[in-house]
């Protein structure tokens, strides 16, 4: 890979992958978790990734975020190819340019909600944009819970803290892997609504993996993954159109 070539859609895309492949094992036992994925995520858009279990959604997210490396192909964030970065630069990138929301265990149990939100900034020795952070905290409705530790928060509140943390450093892109997977539907809807607002109001770019067509319907675009490949996509989805598409391509 020639790392001096700027990414294909620099300026338009916040992040993306070019012919990305990730294999596990060798020979007969080889698993192709990613098998030639090329995709770009537009700045300021909310993208949902859907697909059956084991289809490579998490692997794609990890490689895009620089948590995992590819067998071949490339991923980029902004105008930087991840393969060209050292371990230290990758760490720096995760701290400043990327936000994360996992399905569970998003928070450090010893830190308060407030400290968890500011964690990436604190690790970089920065205070960040105080007004922005206050705004985010207000928006997630956690102002009165800031001094609480994760164990004193409900599952939904914990996920909101995680989203707030992802937003706090104004990253180029936020990756969320089934952020509502562990929540009941009402609480899940709250989180999704909030994420959609973040995209709409603050122009945040978000890529989210989900199983739930209702959740995916909050996105501007749905990408379908199957067997490590992109198998389809849809703009401005509704729950019904997604279900329709899944029925159509599912079998």
């Amino acid at each position: 890979m020639n790392v001096t070539t700027p990414p294909p859609v620099a300026g338009v895309a916040a992040a993306g992958a070019v012919d990305a492949a990730k294999y596990y094992g060798v020979g007969d036992a080889q698993v192709r978790a990613l098998d030639g994925v090329t995709i770009a995520f537009e700045t300021g858009k909310f993208t949902a990734i859907m697909g059956p279990s084991g289809s490579g959604k998490s692997t794609l997210l990890h490689c895009l975020a620089g948590l995992d490396t590819l067998t071949s192909g490339a991923t980029y964030i902004g105008d930087v190819y991840l393969a060209s970065l050292s371990d230290r630069e990758l760490t720096e990138l995760r701290r400043t340019d990327v936000g994360f929301v996992f399905q569970a265990f998003n928070l450090i149990p010893t830190l308060t909600a407030d400290e968890n939100i500011r964690l990436p900034l604190m690790l970089g020795g920065e205070t960040g944009d105080v007004a922005w952070i206050d705004h985010v905290i207000g928006a997630v409705g956690l102002a009165d819970r800031l001094k609480h530790r994760p164990s004193e928060l409900s599952g939904g509140q914990q996920q909101r803290v995680a989203v707030a943390r992802a937003l706090a450093s104004k990253p180029k892109i936020i990756f969320a892997d089934e952020p509502t997977g562990n929540l009941d539907s009402t609480t899940g809807t709250e989180i999704l609504t909030f994420m959609a607002e973040a995209v709409r109001e603050f122009g945040q770019t978000i890529v989210m993996v989900t199983h739930d067509p209702v959740a995916a319907a909050n996105a501007n675009r749905v990408v379908f993954v199957g067997d490590g490949k992109i198998v389809g996509e849809m703009a401005d989805p509704t729950p019904d159109s997604i279900l329709d598409h899944m029925k159509h391509y599912g079998d």
């Binding site: 760490t91 701290r95 400043t96 996992f102 265990f105 450090i108 149990p109 990436p120 690790l123 970089g124």
Partner: peptide, 16 residues
């Protein structure tokens, strides 16, 4: 393990 991994994921360096 999980906690340390999480810290690393959100930007804690090896040195830190």
């Amino acid at each position: 393990t999980r906690e340390i991994g999480l810290l690393r994921a959100v930007g804690m360096s090896r040195r830190q």
